[in-house]
Design a protein around this nucleic acid. Sequence first.
DNA 1: CAGTGAATGTACATTTTTGTACTTATTATG
DNA 2: CATAATAAGTACAAAAATGTACATTCACTG
Lengths: 303, 303
Amino acid sequence: MRQFTWDDLQYFLAVARTGQLTTAARRLRTNHVTVSRRIDRLEEALSARLFERNPRGYILTALGEKLIESAEIVEREADRFQNEASGGTISLSGVVRLSILEGFANFFLADRLPLMAQSYPSLSIEMVTIQQIVSLSRREADLSITLHATRTGPYHQEKLMPYRLFIYGSKDYLSRHPEIRQQSDLSSHQFIGYIEDMIFTPGLDYMREILPGLRASYQSSSIFAQLSATRSSFGLCILPYYIACNYPELVPVLPRQLHLNRDYWLICHEDIVSTPRIRVLSNFIKSELENQTEIFGGQSLLA
Amino acid sequence: MRQFTWDDLQYFLAVARTGQLTTAARRLRTNHVTVSRRIDRLEEALSARLFERNPRGYILTALGEKLIESAEIVEREADRFQNEASGGTISLSGVVRLSILEGFANFFLADRLPLMAQSYPSLSIEMVTIQQIVSLSRREADLSITLHATRTGPYHQEKLMPYRLFIYGSKDYLSRHPEIRQQSDLSSHQFIGYIEDMIFTPGLDYMREILPGLRASYQSSSIFAQLSATRSSFGLCILPYYIACNYPELVPVLPRQLHLNRDYWLICHEDIVSTPRIRVLSNFIKSELENQTEIFGGQSLLA
DNA sequence: CAGTGAATGTACATTTTTGTACTTATTATG
DNA sequence: CATAATAAGTACAAAAATGTACATTCACTG
């Protein structure tokens, strides 16, 4: 009979949090096969079933749910151990340059990163909000958040968070136009979107995907500008739920029929993935994202 | 660069507690080579030195000392995890039969084991105090505490605790006799000891080792009887420090020159070593022994 | 209702970890 | 001062864990 090893708790937590072997594997810098085997082994050692398996992912059993808390204490303390061993906070210094998509940077990280920065006074954090993909290979950034994994290369990449986009209009704008009942009603509206020639990553080409043939009449390379235009009733705009939900005057249009799914990815060089300053920062981002799936998924609009 | 794994904390704790690779290895059911490698790896991952190495054993550095606490929290919580996963306290039932040397049983465990038994109401603990080695192979006991490791066989065995024995006499007895200044003065005294034909384990043959040629004039197979006789001033007796130190009327004789070292060993079948009820009991015994090295070693008498 | 994508599952080659046998070093002992 | 005992260190063989490539399953989509 297999024996229980503390290390497997790390795998347990990763799978519990991501709900998937594959995503957990990326987070643990290994592959789904290994994760699967270690979960099997853990269950065997405990003679208990921790997850329900299905082809779409793993979900915690009631027992697994109960054990999360305990595993998290182990995690917290192991982290503390590692931190103290490395001399604690003081030793964390230097510069980390983050290259982050504008929306995520401004609407999620902007008011959270400073808190982090405070805890590490001698660590200097540089957040570059980008509209072009910044080259990690030329070290223009240490850590990058994008919409896609890179095909190959010496990078560590993990899926950070899925999010969902809907079509929004302001209350005012919608009240001045006939009610939108089906997709075809949209063609008579004005749209706000990205500048087509400047779309630097396929994931941002929303219009082509959701409203093929339509063209935005007001185009900006900045999501902030698009949001402003939408709020001032210029027209309809495709926006992430996690951004739009902060503005009560914005109303989703046909949310059940029309929405898009995207994923944020966290990417960095293999060489630096395990350095303390990178680890601290990426752990911070991941921990801030935890339990925020509703904010990013906008499930309430689909029910 | 190696990466930090939670599992290595188990090795860290074991070495910190036993002070030796070899003993830690037995406790972890592996060998000293593996333990050494995992400590090396841990230190490398943390870029920090946790132990001072020398041929007699490993001792914690100041940093290592500081980290113990954190590692112990991890341990406690990992144990809790394992316990809860297996259904918690309730599932722990059945019988465990312990076969324990009389002295250790009566003078150390007797008033501690009941506490343990209380926490597991449906677990029934049977403590057999033995003067013959009980056969583990015929399952006359599940867990056994002895003075020696068995030569071979399908057993898990670990060194539990070293202890030291001294020659004692009562204050009254010693005051009625001329002062004992050297070993040769002892031959004129009456001795209390084990019945020679009934010494079932070589480790109990104290007299031959410390006072060759002498024979005890009062012999009993029970250490309790020997203690009583010594306290009532019948003569001198070789007693473990951890027992004698509870009786202020007992005075050690030539402690620096004359003392014996012994070790308690914990032995059980490989097959059952990892069952919860065995694990709980042996962990309890080990935890009760922790920080009791002074009581067992009697270092104060050697200084 | 076939095709695509994204997930888990399986088989085998590779790498890593572990254990055994032996060597070396230090302490206690006669 | 040699010898025994006990611990750590080293080299190589055995065993186990890992990663890659491929197969399978299920949901979504046109």
